[in-house]
Design a protein around this nucleic acid. Structure first.
Lengths: 346, 346
DNA sequence: CTGTTAGCGCCTTCAA
DNA sequence: TTGAAGGCGCTAACAG
């Protein structure tokens, strides 16, 4: 089924078929109708590869994530595909699994396939790779990291906003010892969240809590072991903020495991608001970062660059606290109250 | 960067470059070396689109899943991509979201892109669509449904095996009233699991439990509401088997919500063994269905068809019970024991 | 062993 | 408004 057969059947040249297919050039309504009918009758579908070959573009977008197995990403992917689909684009997803070789391989293939743009939703990517992409003038959009430039955009997440809400919420509840379980420190994205937390504390004049920082791995098991260490401290925290929900879920488990309760003994706040967060035991108070919004921002940024808007742009999206049941009043520290030994206390 | 520039630099014809690139035809070691060097120096990468155009094949595989947001699938996707990557293939993933229009769109695009095969890991797909695929001779592999034929393979899951283990486990624990929370009944895959359960019961001469069947939606909320209904019954179940882990997680929550405990009051068994299953409260006993194995079976089946093995094949994979902490002894039914009113009972 | 050449299916000037 | 023709980059005969 080629354009030629359509042309023959409609008794026009292939050029005319191509024109009516793209509504480009001028085609008389009559012939256009004839062509369209021929296409339908033959169930004609243009050969994408041929189109790509002549145009040098593929109507495909690349999407690089770090670990498709982390619930954060499927939701992101879904949103991204949704908008790509609307533009008539397909998406080539690649999960790097934090493996550099694999990442390089995947990105090269994307370039080979002449993707029209790629969204890099993981902070860990060799500079050389992104440079290659940029030098081939492939529109790029980063998450958080990334300086806006010719064809490269950046979606910035305002972590501070949500974190501030979380911290204030906790303080209002009487918590003074707030721990933070970060992601793996070799991940830039994890460091960014950690910094935001630290800055928030110091901004509020809260003492440095460096002893209350623990490192997780953005997975459940990491959260579990981190909280376990935290709880063994002399002076354990009364609340903990986790760098993502998976970590928070591990934290929930860890607290239970030592016989403590959430939120009566320890309050827990997560980050992301993955779907699962509302179903944990207890439901997780968390800082929501809307994946669908993030995805659509990123995807649209790409399309802007693609459609000639050479200069990249920077978008910012907010985060905010979702109150559920994993946070509660701080346990009043058992303090000996001195009662006047005589007289009726007024 | 085209093959021509490489040819020029190596002072050979483009045919020779093509030959050394694919080790096809015969090229003298000397010239081959020269060509290779030229390719390196120029950092030459063949244009995939051109290759696809001439060959009619794209070195891409399609993978259709129903809902990328369901933790079952990301793990499946990951495994699939792993083996595809080894063969030098890319994969075009599409999440149908149970939306027919969307499915049709995605599959058509796959055909347009001349994918070399597609794995259909969702049971809900219009017959007409798969027929189109088949008529274009695109190798296919199905999950569970699907009759093997020319270029179409099938990976069959032996649900019976795992379910039998689960039921036996429960009975050994003294459970007689075992409920089943199915997936949406319009999903063939859900029906298959349900049938397997029913067959297992009747095979063991266990009374028909039709009043203990409830329908969920393969998501957490569906499990939650199903168990809630179940628990309101006159004679509620002492154990429940869920059609997938998400449903089981909802079940866990539902049981807790009415103040009952797992496994002391009700035992719960899930299905799939998603990563999360080991971290639920309590950790979930579940029937494991290895996604990585499923994925690699499916992907390999495709490659067999692609590499000329016209006749499709059927593969079967097992399932088996993973014991964790959500199952326990059945509560002995509170029964009034009649004690002889006189004499010392011997 | 190596080069020449005819397409693969389509888009896009350039003429008519 | 339409058609003819030249590529896009590459593979695969077919000749030397």
């Amino acid at each position: 089924m080629t354009i030629e057969e359509v042309a023959k059947r409609a008794k026009v040249s292939i050029a005319t078929v191509s024109r009516t297919l793209h509504n480009s050039g001028a085609v008389s309504p009559a012939t256009a109708a004839r062509v369209r009918r021929a296409m339908e009758e033959l169930d004609y579908r243009p050969n994408t590869n041929a189109q790509s070959l002549v145009s040098g573009r593929s109507r495909m977008l690349g999407l690089v994530v770090s670990d498709i197995t982390n619930p954060f990403f499927p939701e992101l992917i879904r949103g991204f595909q949704d908008v790509a689909l609307q533009y008539g684009y397909d998406v080539l997803v690649s999960s790097t699994n934090y493996d550099n070789t694999r990442t390089t391989l995947c990105v090269r293939r994307m370039m080979d396939r002449k993707v029209d743009g790629v969204a890099i939703m993981t902070s860990e990517m060799d500079r050389s790779l992104t440079d290659q992409l940029a030098s081939r003038k492939v529109p790029l959009v980063f998450l958080d990291v990334g300086k806006v430039g010719k064809g490269v955009s950046n979606v910035k997440v305002d972590y501070a906003q949500g974190i501030a809400q979380a911290v204030d919420h906790l303080r209002a509840l009487g918590h003074n010892r707030i721990a933070f379980i970060s992601g793996p420190s070799n991940l830039k994205s994890a460091r960014v969240r950690r910094e935001a937390f630290l800055k928030c504390l110091s901004g509020r004049g809260i003492a440095e809590h460096s002893e209350l920082m623990e490192e997780g791995n953005h997975k459940i098991d990491g959260g579990l072991s981190a909280i376990t260490r935290l709880l063994q401290r002399q002076n354990p925290p009364t609340a903990v903020l986790a760098s993502n929900d998976l970590t928070a879920i591990g934290t929930l488990r860890g607290i239970r495991q030592v016989g403590l309760r959430v939120p009566e003994d320890v309050s827990v706040i997560g980050f992301d608001d993955i779907d699962m967060a509302q179903y944990t035991e207890p439901p997780l108070t968390t800082i929501r970062l809307l994946r669908s919004e993030l995805a659509s921002l990123a995807c649209n940024a790409l399309f802007q660059s693609i459609s000639g808007n050479v200069r990249g742009a920077e978008f910012t999206m907010g985060t905010h606290l979702i109150l559920r049941e994993s946070t509660g009043k701080a346990k009043t520290t058992r303090r000996v109250v001195i009662i006047p030994s005589s007289g009726t206390g007024l």
